[in-house]
Amino acid sequence: HNLTITQGKLFFHYNPKLCLSEIHKMEEVSGTKGRQERNDIALKTNGDQASCENELLKFSYIRTSFDKILLRWEPYWPPDFRDLLGFMLFYKEAPYQNVTEFDGQDACGSNSWTVVDIDPPLRSNDPKSQNHPGWLMRGLKPWTQYAIFVKTLVTFSDERRTYGAKSDIIYVQTDATNPSVPLDPISVSNSSSQIILKWKPPSDPNGNITHYLVFWERQAEDSELFELDYCLKGLKLPSRTWSPPFESEDSQKHNQSEYEDSAGECCSCPKTDSQILKELEESSFRKTFEDYLHNVVFVPRKTSSGTGAEDPRPSRKRRSLGDVGNVTVAVPTVAAFPNTSSTSVPTSPEEHRPFEKVVNKESLVISGLRHFTGYRIELQACNQDTPEERCSVAAYVSARTMPEAKADDIVGPVTHEIFENNVVHLMWQEPKEPNGLIVLYEVSYRRYGDEELHLCVSRKHFALERGCRLRGLSPGNYSVRIRATSLAGNGSWTEPTYFYVTDYLDVPSNIA
């Protein structure tokens, strides 16, 4: 807008934040220059609390790290170098490059900038070799853009010569660093050979998330399962459950009422301010606690030095998902009996873990797994792929695949051998790939016309006998059925096997 004052003059007093240069501009645009008398524009009460600059400061050096910015700028000295009290560095987070010096300023003089007072450097006698002032900004957020400017702080001049310097606002972004852990990993099994893994992005990506790394490792069953005799009275049979499938998407929606109208769909109840505040506090606490764990609990591995020492970490090797089922080394339970199943799973520490690289999504279907087997899954978020990966501390989750139908069934015939004193040795093959492992066998036998009897055969007993022995049988026709019990439950009964026990007292003698 054009402003013209045809008559009258300007009068400025007691404006401590208004620089004289701005008042002189007002004289020019209003056409009143030359009308004012000496005392109409006070030299001592206008701009006496402001830094009124008329020179431009330029930054000469900028260096960044993930949490620091090192700045240096060209030296500046007023005509009387004693008038320079120091520099004021202003900075704040700036997602967009549209910041002005006066953003967030209120009537009390406060604003949204963080201000650092910096002492002037030592003055050199040689004007050509003056030290460049600077400042190291610490405690910054990774991968965050900051708006920065600097200006001088000078003393009051009796001659009211307006001098000083100020830089333009520059924008500097800190470097990326390792992201925080992925949030809320959930693993479920939808079949006997697959596990579905879902997660949420890290709360602090500290860069642009480029991919996720998912490692999985087959877990050995508890050692007590191999040692305890679950045929003993009072000892509860062990059981394991597989990871249940995901709930429906509708039930997972946030901010939804727990109660549904019987007449149909209901609208979600909005969260109160107290609920939102509580969630923010919980989120802040979780982030602080995660940072504490990362800094205190997890110790970084030592990389190899120039002395030739090897990095103890196993090298990563990509495998196809079809090879995942046989990740671990199978060892027989008892070496003397080769027909026992290889369900003991000690994992070799030198073995390469299978892994998958996930790009542009937060889910993965891990296939080719062994049925009813526990897996430990390790999830890392990465925001750099080359020249070397920059990934987060791992988040861990466990899951067990679903049982395989008929995996616990005894394959092959049940054979028998009759000894003296009416002892019958029953023999059968253990299931080759049971659900988890076989903890015991149930032997059901009966003599024709009598009630059915049951015998429990422990895992250890089966390994020693290759089956079991029935003792003290009365003469007669017998039928026997056997079924295995694994961590997933009972298998199917075998087809009945028949044998006849004679009275050993009636056996004919070869003595003449």
Rank of each mutant, 00 (worst) to 15 (best):
I209Q: 13
P349V: 03
C231M: 02
R316E: 06
R240P: 10
R459C: 09
C456S: 02
P312D: 13
Q384S: 14
R469K: 05
T401G: 00
L487Y: 10
F289K: 03
A484R: 00
E451M: 13
L277S: 11
L293Q: 09
V297P: 06
S315I: 12
N383V: 07
E282A: 14
E420A: 09
V359G: 12
G308T: 11
L505Y: 12
A220M: 14
R390A: 02
T210I: 09
E350G: 07
P387Y: 14
D506R: 07
V324R: 15
I366A: 03
D273S: 07
Q429Y: 13
K361L: 12
C266W: 09
Q380H: 08
T386W: 10
T343D: 07
V443D: 01
R390M: 14
C231P: 02
P354M: 14
T333G: 15
S458F: 04
F246V: 08
E351I: 03
V358F: 14
E260H: 08
G306Y: 13
R446A: 08
Q429F: 15
L321W: 13
V439G: 09
P431W: 00
I366D: 01
G467N: 02
P403V: 04
N422G: 14
E442T: 03
Y500D: 04
Y375G: 00
L505W: 06
C267V: 13
R319H: 12
S474D: 06
R447L: 14
S479W: 09
V480Q: 10
Q384T: 08
Y292I: 07
E260I: 12
V331W: 03
R400F: 10
V480H: 00
V480I: 14
W493C: 01
Q384P: 04
S341V: 11
P244I: 12
Y441L: 00
L440E: 11
C468G: 03
P245A: 07
K460D: 11
L321A: 09
P270G: 01
L228T: 06
E221S: 13
A220E: 13
Y259T: 12
R353A: 01
I209R: 13
P434Q: 07
S268L: 09
P314E: 03
A263W: 03
T373A: 09
T497W: 07
E281W: 02
G476M: 00
E356M: 14
K406V: 14
G476H: 00
G234C: 07
D385E: 09
C468Q: 03
L473H: 01
C382R: 00
Y375L: 04
E389F: 14
V358R: 08
L321V: 11
T307H: 13
S257T: 06
K233E: 12
M402L: 07
S251N: 13
V296R: 10
R400L: 04
S444Q: 06
R471V: 05
L369M: 13
T340R: 06
A488Q: 15
K361R: 05
I438N: 06
R483Q: 14
K406E: 09
A381R: 02
F499H: 01
G489V: 11
V365E: 10
R400K: 07
E404L: 07
G234M: 13
M402R: 07
Y478A: 00
E282Q: 14
T272W: 08
G234I: 15
E378W: 04
I377W: 12
R319F: 14
T415R: 13
E388I: 15
P431R: 01
N326P: 14
N208E: 12
E388D: 03
S284T: 14
T373Q: 09
P300T: 10
I377C: 07
V331N: 12
D204M: 04
L235P: 07
D311M: 15
L293C: 03
M402D: 06
S474G: 11
K361G: 11
N383L: 11
K302R: 12
T386I: 11
E388R: 14
G306Q: 10
Y504F: 03
A381D: 00
T272I: 09
L505E: 12
F372W: 10
T347A: 10
D408G: 02
P314F: 15
E420N: 15
T241A: 11
R316L: 05
T303P: 13
G264H: 12
S284W: 12
Q380D: 13
H416F: 10
G308V: 09
Q252D: 04
L225N: 02
H294G: 06
F289Q: 11
C266K: 08
C267Y: 13
R313E: 14
Q380V: 03
N490L: 14
Q380L: 11
I209G: 12
N490G: 15
T373L: 10
V331R: 10
E249W: 06
A381F: 01
Y478W: 09
V327C: 10
S479F: 06
V359D: 01
K406S: 08
I410P: 12
H352Y: 13
G207H: 01
P314S: 14
P403G: 09
V329G: 08
N206Q: 15
I438K: 01
T288Y: 14
S320L: 11
W428F: 09
L237C: 12
G489N: 11
R400N: 10
S342E: 10
S320C: 10
I276A: 04
C456P: 02
V411L: 13
N510W: 11
N490W: 14
H461V: 08
A405P: 05
V299Y: 15
P496M: 03
E217Q: 14
E495F: 08
T386L: 02
N208L: 09
K432V: 05
P354T: 09
K432N: 07
K317N: 06
N339Y: 08
R481T: 01
V423G: 15
Q252C: 09
S284M: 07
E310P: 05
V365H: 12
N422C: 04
D506G: 14
F499L: 14
M402V: 11
A394S: 05
P387R: 05
P205W: 04
S223I: 05
Y292T: 09
A309E: 10
L280A: 15
Y498M: 14
S363H: 05
K460N: 12
I482K: 01
E279C: 00
W428L: 00
K317T: 07
N435M: 00
S223C: 13
F246N: 15
P312G: 14
S284N: 14
P434M: 04
A336N: 05
Y445A: 14
N477Q: 06
V214G: 15
D291A: 06
G308S: 08
F246G: 08
D408W: 00
K406A: 14
V443P: 01
Y478C: 00
S257D: 12
H416C: 11
G472N: 12
R376S: 10
S474N: 14
T328V: 08
Y292N: 09
I209A: 08
F285M: 14
V480F: 06
P244V: 08
D273A: 12
G264R: 12
E290T: 07
N255G: 13
R218V: 04
V324D: 04
V480P: 01
L237P: 11
K361N: 10
R481F: 04
E279D: 12
E290A: 11
T485C: 14
S486I: 00
E350V: 13
S305D: 15
R471Y: 15
P270T: 15
Y500K: 12
L453T: 13
P245C: 04
G234R: 08
E452N: 02
R353Q: 08
R466H: 08
G306K: 10
P270W: 12
I366N: 01
E442F: 06
E282F: 09
E417A: 15
